[in-house]
Amino acid sequence: MTDEVAEDDYEEVVENVALCSECDDYMEHEILKERKVGTGRDLLLKCISCSAINNLQIREPKSISIPFILTDGPHSARVELAIDEDEVFNIGDVFEEDEMLWTINQILDKDKRKKKTILAIDASSISALRTDMVRVKITATRGEQSDSSSMLVEYGTKFTADTKIDYQGEVWRIRAIHTGAGRTLKGTVESQDIKRIYLHEPPNPEHFEPKTPRERRQAWKEGRLGYNPNPEIPKEITKKRVTPSNKRKKKRPRK
């Protein structure tokens, strides 16, 4: 039993595999002769199965230059990158450049047509968006004045509407989050899906403090200023709590 399992688990390692023109399949070959050509090699091979002799040339792919449009928030830059001519690019591929991560979002061929996948030698330009960090647009409103700016956050950072955040050293309230589908006043959205965040200055507690003697007396009565053992409950709250028990019953209509 052990021997059978051992035989089943055994994998034969085959070296020098190449396409044999006679066998019409990839077969193991014996190297009869080898000659270096630049960074590549020329090989004279003999098929182990049918003894056919074949020549094989191995060459490193040529390096070509492709223009990349790299976009980081509102800023875009065109750079030329050296790429192997046989490399394949796809929409959504992530690569590193200048110690930053980028995601391919557009590929154009030689005829300026958009492609989802392409061989490097057939590409005219490739566009990519920065992935590791996301620049989120901000509109902060204080009173009647609104200011627009942006902040750089990590990809995947979550923002929740109607919550407070620390922005530029101050506390703000997220009034709404604008996505491609519209504004949301509730819910959580990740940074890469946000078009703009609308911030409002949270109400200042001093705004609600009593200012006149009459307001201060009323605030003390209600227990909002210091200790009051028997605070008076405001009428608007009392009315909500009390359910009248002396309601007049409606008379039943006579038959």
Rank of each mutant, 00 (worst) to 15 (best):
V37D: 08
V171G: 08
L19M: 09
H207G: 04
K115H: 02
E201Y: 05
M27K: 09
D111S: 05
K33G: 02
G38Y: 04
A176E: 15
E87M: 03
D147Q: 13
Y26E: 12
C50G: 11
D98H: 04
E87W: 05
N55Q: 13
K251H: 14
G169H: 14
K36T: 03
K255H: 14
T184D: 08
D8L: 08
K114H: 02
E85Q: 07
I174P: 01
I138V: 08
A6P: 00
L81H: 06
K249E: 13
N246A: 10
K112M: 02
E4Q: 04
E60G: 00
E85W: 01
D9L: 10
I177P: 04
S65P: 04
V171E: 15
E80T: 03
T117P: 02
T238V: 09
T179Y: 12
C47Y: 09
E190M: 06
R241F: 11
D24C: 03
T179S: 14
I107G: 01
Y198K: 09
N228M: 02
R183T: 04
S125K: 13
E209K: 13
N55C: 11
T238R: 14
K211V: 06
F159M: 11
K251V: 14
I66C: 00
G143D: 09
E11P: 00
T238G: 03
H178V: 07
M1V: 04
P231M: 05
D147E: 15
E30M: 08
K221E: 05
I69A: 09
R175V: 02
D84A: 12
A18N: 05
K211H: 07
E80L: 09
T179R: 12
L32G: 00
N228G: 00
E209G: 00
M100A: 08
A219M: 11
I107M: 06
S150E: 13
E206Y: 13
G226D: 04
E222N: 05
I237F: 10
L199T: 00
T188G: 08
T103W: 05
T163I: 05
T141V: 09
G169S: 12
T238A: 12
S51P: 03
E4F: 14
E34P: 02
P67G: 06
I126V: 10
E15Q: 06
L129H: 06
Q106D: 07
A6Y: 09
D93C: 03
E99A: 01
N246I: 05
C47M: 10
S76Q: 07
V14A: 06
E87K: 07
A140Y: 14
T238I: 10
K114T: 02
T184G: 05
A176H: 10
K250L: 15
P231R: 04
E222M: 05
G180F: 14
A6S: 09
D25Q: 07
H200A: 11
E30K: 12
D193M: 12
R217C: 11
A181Q: 15
T157P: 02
R241D: 10
H75N: 11
A128R: 09
I104E: 01
I107Q: 04
I237A: 11
S150D: 15
Y227Q: 09
E144H: 13
A128L: 07
V171S: 12
D166L: 14
H75V: 15
D86P: 00
K251I: 14
D132R: 09
F68S: 01
E206K: 13
R224M: 10
K158G: 01
T163W: 15
T243R: 15
Y26A: 06
Y227L: 11
E60I: 12
L19P: 02
R241N: 11
T2R: 12
Q57W: 12
I104W: 01
K115T: 01
